[in-house]
Computed example of a mutant assay.
Amino acid sequence: MAAPDLLWECVKNSSSFIRKNKNVPTMTAEPGNLTSLNSFKYSGLAGKQVLGLDSKKVGKKESIVLTTRSKRKGRQQRPGTVLVTTGIKKGAKKGPAQLKKIIAETYNRPELLEMALAKYAKIKRSFKKKVALQSVRSKK
């Protein structure tokens, strides 16, 4: 595997995931990027320790998925299998506990735990649906 610094120099300005807009920092849509900022610290393409938290929707079912880099040597050489996704529970106590356990046991960047918990809360809040006013009015 190439050095992370070299990979970052290759992809920082020419990645297909980059999203540029005026008056906004350069963002990225790459898998494994926790904050969606185009920086080496959070990069899912160039970093050795990858941590991403996203929502996934299949049909009507919505779930929260944690993305990390595989520790197995054989997967490191294959781009299609280097990233591993893990489902995170949506319970109020079980979800954050599972996230803390995974980051503490398998991930050696604990400073990202608070960001991951904040993003988990935002994703979970986004799953809540607003009650339609028509159904409230029709009951009257």
Rank of each mutant, 00 (worst) to 15 (best):
V65D: 03
W8N: 08
F127K: 02
D5F: 12
V82E: 05
G47H: 06
A46G: 08
A97Q: 13
G80W: 04
K57P: 02
L99F: 06
K140F: 10
L7Y: 02
R125T: 05
G44K: 06
Q134M: 00
N38I: 03
R72I: 05
I88Q: 07
L37G: 00
S43Y: 04
Q98P: 04
Y42F: 15
D5H: 12
G87Y: 10
M115Q: 12
F40N: 03
A29Q: 10
K89F: 06
L133C: 00
L83Q: 09
P31W: 00
K22A: 15
K60Y: 09
N33A: 04
A2K: 15
S138Q: 09
L112W: 07
A104T: 14
L37I: 01
F127T: 00
V84L: 09
S55A: 12
A121W: 01
G47M: 04
L6F: 13
S63Y: 04
G44Q: 07
T68H: 01
L7S: 11
V84M: 07
L83K: 12
N23S: 14
T26P: 02
I64V: 13
S63M: 15
L6E: 15
L133S: 01
V82N: 02
K89N: 15
Y120C: 04
I18E: 08
G80N: 10
S36L: 06
L7T: 15
L37W: 01
K89M: 08
P25R: 10
N23D: 15
K93Y: 07
F17T: 14
T85Q: 15
L83H: 14
K41A: 13
R109E: 14
P31M: 03
K139N: 07
N108H: 11
R137I: 07
L34A: 02
L34R: 03
V82C: 08
L66E: 03
A29Y: 07
L99K: 09
K128C: 00
K130C: 00
G32D: 02
L37S: 06
A116E: 02
T85G: 03
T28D: 05
L34Y: 02
L37F: 10
K101Q: 11
M1R: 14
Q77T: 09
A118T: 12
L83A: 03
P96M: 08
E114L: 08
K139M: 09
E114T: 13
K56F: 13
V65C: 05
K48T: 12
E111V: 08
Y42I: 01
I88N: 07
R109I: 12
K60V: 07
R78V: 09
V58K: 14
V11L: 07
K57L: 10
N21T: 13
G87V: 04
L34T: 01
V131E: 03
T26S: 14
R19V: 15
M115D: 15
S16L: 12
A29K: 11
N108V: 02
K56D: 14
A118I: 05
A104K: 15
L6Y: 12
G80T: 03
T86C: 08
S138H: 01
I102H: 06
L83C: 02
A92H: 11
N21I: 09
S55I: 06
T35L: 11
K128M: 04
Q98E: 14
K139L: 11
Q49S: 11
I102S: 05
